[in-house]
Write a protein that binds this DNA or RNA. Structure first.
Lengths: 250, 250
DNA sequence: CTAGTGCACTGGTCGGACCAGTAGGCTACG
DNA sequence: CGTAGCCTACTGGTCCGACCAGTGCACTAG
């Protein structure tokens, strides 16, 4: 009954095949970050296509964050090291299009940060522990300097924890989601009424988290980290969403 | 000492501004999924640019998964509903370029799936609970039919849990990371020696997880979910990475 | 009323052209 | 001899006009 199983032919556009080839060259390592692609006019020769086609391919590669081109650059497009930019862009667009609420984002941060602390408590090296201590020390100094400096030191602490978790995926997602959240609440954080008290309390919380990490008590570190995050952001989250956040606190 | 703070001027390319405008129209909702963009020739009139520029903008929008165009379509490019495709693409490329190990990916799944179960145990609706039960029932049937059907039912269960967590971000990340992991181990899963025993044990584990979710015991559900994931994948993870996974089991 | 045909239009690709910008070599001046 | 400044050859960004294969719709012939 059934003859030979034919598959639907996929019409592959010329620029897509160029994208594939370059992408593969980058992934296979034969094209390293910092290296340059040939100029568009060279590429049109190598691929036997017109410049328009080459350019459309480059636009796609650029949109994926693999390549950057600059007018006038005599060396051609530059192959970029991986950045989470593309990931962040699509997640940010996800956040807007899909209508992600601040509550969901904060909840996700609680999950990630909690897990990062859990892992860090068990897997950290002495050097990483020192980094975290340095970050908190920096937070204490920065509290005198201003809110921006304090925020930066805060970020540095969470990054140190994420690194100590030993999981690059966690590390990157922490970074991506945090930047989205900070983008959403930046204006409201700026004019918080009692910033000094907020910073002092935040430092104390971070110290408790660090102590748990130092002691290797993962579950405690995770719980404290989630609680810290909750205390810090709950005020900006609509009351209706808060119960979902509290579900992550024992 | 410091004069007026000048900022570096950012030369904005024409196609970028087109991308911005269309992106914003989609995000603001004035352009809904299913609707059509004007034809390229119309757009070049509306934006006062050449077709090449319009096309480059469309390439970028297409690369971000916001739009699809098809040759010959008399209605112009179609605005797509959000899919996690773009997210998945950038995360998959991250996995390759950054050299994410299977261990890290599985660990991340343990984190996500654990948290999803924790939340689901506390926030699930009766309907969602029924979905999970149906998915497990489907797993029992599928175990007779074959490995592919079983895998599909397994995926359906985890999706039901992710939905019940109430967090779309968790839901999407679960989906994205799972598809990457499955892509990595697909060939090795196919010729596992004792597939029947594997499936039976997997069903039993899932039943235990479901029971915990039904009882509203979040921490237990989370721990069981992580344990299930570990048992299922640990064999494919290099022994050196396994301790990091076990750090997530009490 | 339906089956078939033709047309108007689409996106994909091509080739050529011009512009503003850059880098590096060249020149002329100190 | 060294350096400051110009010059040129090249880059990417944009525009234009053209052709092709594919699509959907309206119109027509049966």
């Amino acid at each position: 009954m059934s003859g030979p199983r034919f598959e639907p032919v996929r019409t592959v556009r010329a620029y897509e095949r160029i994208v594939e080839q370059v992408e593969q060259a980058i992934e296979s390592g034969s094209l390293c970050p910092g290296q340059r692609l040939p100029s568009e006019r060279d590429l049109m020769g190598q691929f036997s296509v017109s410049r328009s086609t080459v350019r459309e391919a480059l636009r796609v590669l650029q949109a994926r964050g693999l390549v950057r081109s600059r007018p006038g650059d005599p060396h051609g497009a530059e192959v970029l090291p991986f950045t989470s930019d593309a990931l962040q862009k699509s997640m940010a667009s996800l956040a807007r299009v899909e209508g992600l609420s601040l509550g969901e984002l904060v909840q996700f941060r609680m999950v990630l940060d909690g897990s990062a602390n859990l892992l860090a408590a068990r897997l950290r090296t002495p050097g990483q522990l020192a980094e975290m201590e340095a970050a908190i020390e920096r937070m204490r100094e920065a509290a005198q300097e201003g809110y921006d400096a304090f925020g930066a030191a805060d970020v540095a602490f969470h990054d140190a924890v994420a690194r100590a978790s030993g999981n690059k995926l966690i590390q990157i997602c922490v970074e991506v989601v945090r930047s989205i959240v900070l983008g959403l609440v930046a204006d409201r954080l700026a004019d918080a009424p009692d910033r000094d008290a907020l910073m002092r309390r935040s430092i104390r919380h971070h110290e408790e988290v660090l102590a748990a990490v130092r002691d290797g008590d993962g579950p405690l570190a995770a719980r404290l980290a989630r609680q810290t995050m909750y205390d810090y952001y709950a005020g900006y989250v609509p009351a209706a969403e808060r119960p979902a956040l509290r579900a992550l606190l024992e």
